[in-house]
Each structure stands twice: as C-alpha cells, then as structure tokens.
C-alpha cells in the first residue's frame, strides 16, 4: 500500500469543483417575446476527484448524469464553466490556462464509444493511426512513420497490412482496436475512455477489455474509464466514482465500493444488475426515473427516489465527506442513519 499513499500525495490528474453548464435557452427573439428566462443544463455540477498514476478511475452513472461531459472537459473538448483541472500539478482547466493546456494535451488521448463514428470513413487506417504522429511531429520520414504504424497495429492485435484498408472494411471490435492504436500513437500516459465497449457485443467487449488491461500493464497507462455497466467497471477499475445528475455521490476503491456501498443510489444501482449467476437473489426493482437535469430536484438530487429521505434532504445539498477513505455525499450516511 506504499504505492497508494505515494499516489495520493501526487495525483496525475486532479479535478476540483468542476462545473459545466450548457445554455439551452430559446433563441433571443423567442426569449424576448415569450418572456422566457435563460435556462441551463447543469451537466456537471461541482465534481472533485483525483486519479493516481497507473490507476484506472471509473465514472459510472445512468444516461444524462454528466459522466461523458466530465471526460470531454478533461481532454479539453469543452471549456469548464468553473473549477480546476490539474494535470501533474499544472492547471489546465480555465480558458486562461490555454498555453498550459496546449503543453499538457499531448500527454492525454481519448477513445470514443462509437466505433463507427470515431474513424474518418475517407481515410485509410494507416493515415488514421499516423495522425497523432504527424501532429506531434514524433517521427519524420514516411518509412519511419509507416514502420511505427505497423508496430502499433500489431500491438492492438491487427496486422500491419490492415493499414492500407478503409475503416468500413472492419468490424466494430476491430475498429475499436484501430481507435486504440491511434490513441497510443500519440504516446500518451493518460487515456480517457468514453464507454469504449458499450457498442460492442460481449465476446468482443471481453477482447477489448483484455487488450486495454494488457496495454496498461505494458505501457504504464493511467485510465479514466466512463461506463454505465457496473460489471465492466468492477472488472477494470481500481477506483470508482458514482455520478448522479452532474454530481459525484460516492467514490472509493473498487472493492470497498462494491462490497460496502454506502450511498443509497449506489446501492440501488448494484441492486438493479441482472443476476447472471441465477442465485435466486430477489431483486428489488427501483422505483422512479432520473429527473431532468434542466430542472433538478432541490437539495439532494436523489431525494425523490431515495428510501432514506428526510426533510433536510429536500432543502440542503449534501457535501461529500470521507468515511474510511470512502467519499460519500449523503445526509443519511452523515447522520449514521445508514452504515
């Protein structure tokens, strides 16, 4: 556990109070005539976590909880509305930190969900994989670059000869391998994976997950893994954060979180997983649905679905507190009403 304490001291990536609101107001003229206010989706509403070097940190949650937005904020596809993102201690979040962002950007790469949309259909695979090499100027000379591309394709389980083909000639799993090869071409140390296996069949998902673990061991990569599938998250991650309506409700070491979930929402999610072992465990289907993030419930956003709700939950949003290394944002846990 020595390593862990060292990681905690100097995280590779640290996010503090990250906020991103999207303007979803009606057009100006409509607002003027219909007397509407501007409205915002609070996609990410104050999130803090750290990722240590070599870890896999997963964010789980249902659709619309803002987990993909967090991924895109970290790689700079979106500008944060507020809050800080520090990479190796360097602030790269705010607009003013554009120069630092540019310096740090090459260290991170992203893998996307849709293997059909994430590769330019008009480029050959070799060109797609070589793009980061060109942009970063890692290698000069056609021959060197092609040799490197061949090496990368081999690394992800394809053949160098595949480089001359076009994306549409490959299956979903193979395309995801190409995506991974492209991400690795930039020689990153930090990979953000946004639902990399959600669009794949289970047997192919297993191939990709194994490949990603394998690469992590060999190249010492750090992952931020976004997924809605708790079983996948359990399998790949060292730490897990559970998101609900733009907030992180609980984050902890994977084993701790799955063995002893504290937040009622985490418990609910775990309960909802289909029982594949057919152990006959009786599941309690969870009532209710995720509210709209445009108009989230007051106080704790989970209160309308929470079995432990109290008057206070409806008014006051709980702040995350640490219990034995587990970060939980819940009044009931704080008051000791649930262990």
């Amino acid at each position: 556990m020595n390593d862990a304490s060292k990681n905690a001291a100097a995280p590779l990536l640290s996010v503090d109070g990250l906020v991103r609101h999207f303007d979803v107001s009606a057009p100006f003229l409509n607002r003027l005539f219909e007397r509407l206010d501007r409205s915002y989706v609070k996609a990410v509403d104050g999130i803090s976590f750290d990722i240590g070097r070599g870890e896999t940190f997963s964010l789980v949650g249902e659709s619309g909880c803002g987990k993909s937005t967090v991924a895109r904020l970290i790689v700079g596809l979106y500008q944060p509305t507020a809050g800080s993102i520090q990479y190796e201690g360097v602030e790269i979040g705010p607009r003013e930190a554009a120069a630092a962002r540019k310096r740090m950007q090459p260290h991170m790469q992203m893998i996307f969900q849709d293997p059909y949309a994430s590769l330019n259909p008009r480029w050959r695979v070799a060109e797609i994989v070589a793009e980061p090499i060109h942009v970063r100027g890692l290698l000069q000379g056609k021959r060197e670059i092609l040799a490197r591309v061949g090496e990368l394709l081999t690394q992800v389980g394809l053949s160098p000869a595949d480089g001359e083909r076009y994306p549409h000639e490959f299956s979903g799993g193979q395309r995801q391998r190409i995506s991974i090869a492209r991400a690795l071409a930039g020689e990153p140390e930090f990979l953000v994976c946004d639902e990399p296996t959600s669009a794949l069949d289970v047997s192919v998902q297993a191939q990709i997950l194994n490949l990603m673990k394998d690469l992590q061991d060999r190249l010492g990569l750090t992952y931020l893994f976004i997924s809605h599938d708790l079983a996948v998250v359990y399998h790949v991650s060292t730490k897990v954060g559970v998101m609900y309506l733009g907030r992180l409700v609980e984050w902890a070491e994977t084993n701790t979180l799955f063995e002893n979930p504290r937040h009622p929402y985490t418990r609910m999610l775990l309960d909802a997983i289909p029982d594949l072992e057919m152990s006959g465990r009786q599941r309690i289907p969870v009532a209710g649905e995720v509210p709209s993030p445009i108009n989230p419930p007051s106080g704790c956003a989970f209160h309308p679905r929470c079995p432990h709700v109290e008057a206070r939950c409806r008014i006051e949003a709980p702040l995350p507190r640490i219990y034995d290394g587990v970060h939980v944002a819940c009044h009931a846990v704080a008051d000791g009403r649930i262990s």
């Binding site: 895109r72 790689v75 700079g76 596809l77 540019k102 950007q105 090459p106 991170m108 790469q109 992203m110 996307f112 969900q113 849709d114 949309a117 994430s118 590769l119 330019n120 793009e131 980061p132 942009v135 970063r136 995506s179 492209r182 930039g186």
Partner: peptide
C-alpha cells in the same frame, strides 16, 4: 459532432 472530429481535436490538430 462526430467522434472522429473530436478525436482529431484531442490529438491537437
């Protein structure tokens, strides 16, 4: 908004 364009942005084009 397709992911290949976003990928190119992350790559730093």
């Amino acid at each position: 908004n397709k992911e290949y364009v976003q990928a190119a942005r992350v790559i730093g084009r």
